[in-house]
Simulated scan of single mutants.
Amino acid sequence: MNNYIAFCLFFSLLSLSTCEKNDSEVVGNWLLTEVLADPGDGSGVFTPVDSDRVIQLKDDGTYSANGNLCDFQIVANASSSGIYNLEEGTISPDNCATIGGTPIGLSVDGSTMIITYLCIEACQHKYERQ
């Protein structure tokens, strides 16, 4: 019985710590700094990129960007917007025909944000807080 109580207490505390991470911790501008594109053998690593792509996460759960998040490009040549959800770990661009409305993966750890695209092999963008 004591193990069960300890188990429940542990997961309750874990849930609370997850809930404490709120949108206000990620609100602001994020600059694309690195890209991971695995060649198919699991050897892919993040490599630095020279990009002006910025995503602005807003406190109402929406975002705006100066690049199209519907694809894996690094250019900053189009305005885009959508919603994000930290609890679900997703970012969902508006009007994104290329991914058929499927949310893109999103994770934030301190000053690093990772966007995980839907690819056969691993493909991610790494952003740094500005």
Rank of each mutant, 00 (worst) to 15 (best):
M1W: 11
M1I: 14
N2H: 12
N3H: 12
Y4D: 14
I5N: 06
F7N: 13
L9Q: 10
F11W: 15
L13D: 01
L13N: 10
L14R: 06
L14G: 10
S15W: 00
S17F: 10
C19T: 12
E20Y: 12
E20T: 10
K21I: 06
S24M: 11
S24C: 09
E25S: 08
V27A: 15
N29A: 13
L31A: 10
L32W: 09
L32H: 11
V35E: 05
V35A: 01
V35R: 07
L36V: 13
L36M: 14
P39W: 08
G40R: 03
G40F: 10
D41L: 03
G42M: 03
S43T: 15
S43P: 00
G44S: 00
G44M: 01
G44P: 00
V45E: 14
V45K: 13
F46H: 02
P48Q: 12
P48L: 03
P48F: 00
V49T: 04
D50E: 13
D50R: 02
D50N: 14
D50L: 06
S51A: 06
S51K: 07
R53Y: 02
R53Q: 13
R53A: 11
R53E: 10
V54M: 03
V54H: 02
I55N: 01
L57E: 07
L57F: 15
G61Y: 01
Y63T: 03
Y63V: 04
S64Y: 06
A65I: 12
G67T: 11
N68K: 05
N68C: 07
N68M: 05
L69K: 02
D71A: 10
F72M: 15
F72H: 12
V75D: 11
A76T: 08
A76C: 03
A76M: 06
A76R: 02
A78C: 04
S79N: 05
S79Y: 09
S79G: 08
S80Q: 05
G82N: 06
I83M: 11
Y84H: 04
Y84S: 07
Y84G: 04
Y84M: 06
L86V: 05
E87C: 01
G89C: 10
G89D: 09
P93L: 04
P93M: 04
D94Q: 15
N95P: 00
C96I: 03
A97R: 08
A97Q: 12
A97T: 12
T98C: 05
T98K: 09
I99N: 13
I99F: 03
G101R: 04
G101L: 04
G101V: 01
T102S: 09
P103D: 04
I104H: 02
I104R: 01
G105Q: 08
G105K: 07
G105P: 05
L106V: 12
S107V: 07
V108D: 02
V108W: 12
V108C: 06
V108H: 06
G110D: 07
S111T: 12
M113F: 02
Y117T: 03
C119T: 15
I120S: 09
A122D: 13
A122L: 08
A122G: 07
A122P: 00
C123Q: 14
H125I: 12
Y127N: 07
Y127R: 09
E128M: 07
E128H: 06
R129G: 03
R129A: 15
R129N: 09
R129S: 10
Q130G: 05
Q130V: 15
Q130P: 00
